[in-house]
Design a protein around this nucleic acid. Sequence first.
DNA 1: TTAAAAATAGAACAATTGTTCTTCTTAGGC
DNA 2: GCCTAAGAAGAACAATTGTTCTATTTTTAA
Lengths: 216, 216
Amino acid sequence: MKSQLSAKRKRIVDFIRQFMEAKGYPPTVRDIQGGCGISSTSVVDYHLKVLEKEGHIRRDAEVSRGIELLGRASSLPKVQVPIIGQIAAGEPVPVPDSETWDAAAGADLLEVTADLTRGRQDIYALKVKGMSMVDALINDGDIVLMQYVNTVDNGEMAAVWLKAEKEATLKKVYIEPGRVRLQPANSRMQPIYAEPENVEIQGKVIAVIRQLGKPA
Amino acid sequence: MKSQLSAKRKRIVDFIRQFMEAKGYPPTVRDIQGGCGISSTSVVDYHLKVLEKEGHIRRDAEVSRGIELLGRASSLPKVQVPIIGQIAAGEPVPVPDSETWDAAAGADLLEVTADLTRGRQDIYALKVKGMSMVDALINDGDIVLMQYVNTVDNGEMAAVWLKAEKEATLKKVYIEPGRVRLQPANSRMQPIYAEPENVEIQGKVIAVIRQLGKPA
DNA sequence: TTAAAAATAGAACAATTGTTCTTCTTAGGC
DNA sequence: GCCTAAGAAGAACAATTGTTCTATTTTTAA
């Protein structure tokens, strides 16, 4: 149902998008009139009616600024995730506290679409430092999205703190009788085993994001 | 400047957010009045004035629905990236064509925030199949964001098609005198060398996204 | 060329909607 | 109690803004 846009109507849609971005609310018919160099409000209304029929916008009758851009741009909400620190082999893993998710708290924020977090709560992010996690297929500089939990299901990847060794690592965790098996994500590599008392789950790994060719 | 919200004002802010999500445009004073069970428009105006002074919203005077939520919505635009196929060791790498970025073209779309693509154009995505890319620290099921280019700078990671071997791989590419060095991202591993005629750059790797614990 | 469809113009109207004014109630500090 | 500030109520007003009507021009198709 969504046919191709004529030049003028594409201009109108673009204008609505820009206006929305700049102001936070949609333009009026007269805003569009001025912004697109159209000489009458009735012409704007005419094109808006066509755009609605073609499925590019949705309009609410008799409602001021009652225009919504469709084209499934607005579907997925964004989530802001605080980057609370870095994870490195020899350092304790930063853990979120009650203030971590206060909007005011000024930490670095990463913005991701909600499909990455799948609507989960208590999400935070850590920046990976060093090459010690390559067995988990995680590189220096990667961002790991974490969920703050103290237990994980078998096979889920978690940030693990090995108390005796004072070492942080990212591994798939399997609870086995009398021991915990820590399995690298790279299944070609060998697991290591640890005493249950020696293992502290610091959080569950939800996703990994790597940007290549970063500036310094 | 952003003090804590009283119960009633928190309700108003939440209502504005929900209304915005549902309708695509902000509510009127009277919408808020009805939605929050307030008995007079002047009371709504009173609270909106306070919310603006406290920095939670921005208002445009004399403008209908002239309310913008601040704080969140740092308004990084989102980008829709088509997932045009999969990349596996023994298969040719899908390359985008002119129709790939037509909004209408129905392929799977991945939505990411623009900071991931850094505003680059001609971005597409591939789903990694198989374990053959683990030397690039890329796992089965990962999504790689690609930019459609035929040449890369030294050290950038690219999707490479080795014509003779009929094999696809993701490697860092270094042009050297008389040969091309293909270096795994895992720097502990050894590079391989190829004839320049045997190397076809299919695209540059911009980012890697991995979701853990996916449903089937 | 000619007729139909698409697009444009200008104006007037009516509904929506922000603003303001006055009065009243409630809550907390002294 | 008495005071001040915050909050609430209702109504009236004025600006904003969507809608509609008729007439005209341009484009498209036969």
